[in-house]
Amino acid sequence: MATELVLSAMALLGIAIVIPLFMLVTTVFGPRAGGTAKNEAYESGVKRMIGLAEQKFSVKYYMLAILFLLFDIEAVFMYPWAVNVRELGWFGFTEMFVFMVLLLTGLFYILKKGVLNWR
């Protein structure tokens, strides 16, 4: 068992060394993409930046990102429940019902507070 652990650790260490070395070699010796767009500050086509780079974002963007993560995680919790809904029975159904009621309460709260209003 100890030899298997040592071999696994050596394999992991080897992979951790080989992959960055391979990336470095391809970056240094790989083909260069031509064109003037690659030499520009913003490859997206923006020629002139408006405002300073240190410009602060509004808190609304952060609130929206947090709300997205909240409801995205809610969907992640619903997938396993949907797969096992028949095996869980009424107990699983009531648990998910309570979970959804709590989330809908939170959604109504943020709608009432006007978090999603951008005016």
Score class of each variant (00 low, 15 high):
R32C: 02
F93C: 03
E40R: 11
L52H: 06
L107G: 02
A11V: 03
F97R: 11
G106Q: 03
V115P: 00
E54F: 04
F97N: 13
I17E: 02
M100W: 08
T26A: 10
A53Y: 09
S44R: 04
E4Y: 09
L102W: 00
E54V: 02
Y42E: 12
F99W: 05
Q55Y: 02
W90V: 12
V98W: 02
P20K: 06
T36P: 13
L107A: 06
L111C: 07
G114K: 03
L70V: 15
G45A: 01
K113Y: 01
A41M: 09
K56S: 07
G114Y: 01
V59N: 05
L103V: 13
V6S: 04
K60M: 05
F57K: 15
E4D: 09
K38Q: 10
A2N: 09
G89E: 02
F68K: 07
M10L: 15
L88R: 14
L116H: 01
M10F: 09
E74P: 02
G45M: 01
R86L: 06
R48Q: 14
W118K: 12
A33V: 11
G14M: 09
P20C: 03
V85T: 12
A75W: 08
Y109L: 14
A75E: 06
T27M: 10
Y62S: 07
R119I: 03
F91A: 13
G14P: 04
L67W: 03
L107H: 00
S8Q: 12
E43A: 11
V59C: 04
M63T: 06
V25T: 10
Y42A: 07
A37N: 14
I110R: 00
A2P: 04
K60L: 03
Y61F: 14
L21T: 14
M78L: 15
V59M: 08
F29P: 01
L21I: 14
Q55N: 11
K112H: 13
T27P: 00
L111P: 00
A33L: 14
L24Y: 14
T105E: 00
M10S: 14
G30S: 03
K113P: 00
L67V: 13
V46D: 05
L116F: 05
L88D: 05
M100V: 15
L116R: 01
F71E: 01
F93T: 10
M78F: 15
Y61P: 05
N117P: 01
L24D: 09
M10P: 00
I19H: 08
V98N: 11
Q55W: 04
S8K: 12
L104K: 03
A41C: 04
F77H: 14
A11N: 08
L104F: 05
W81Q: 08
A16W: 03
R86I: 07
G114Q: 00
F57M: 13
L5C: 05
S58L: 04
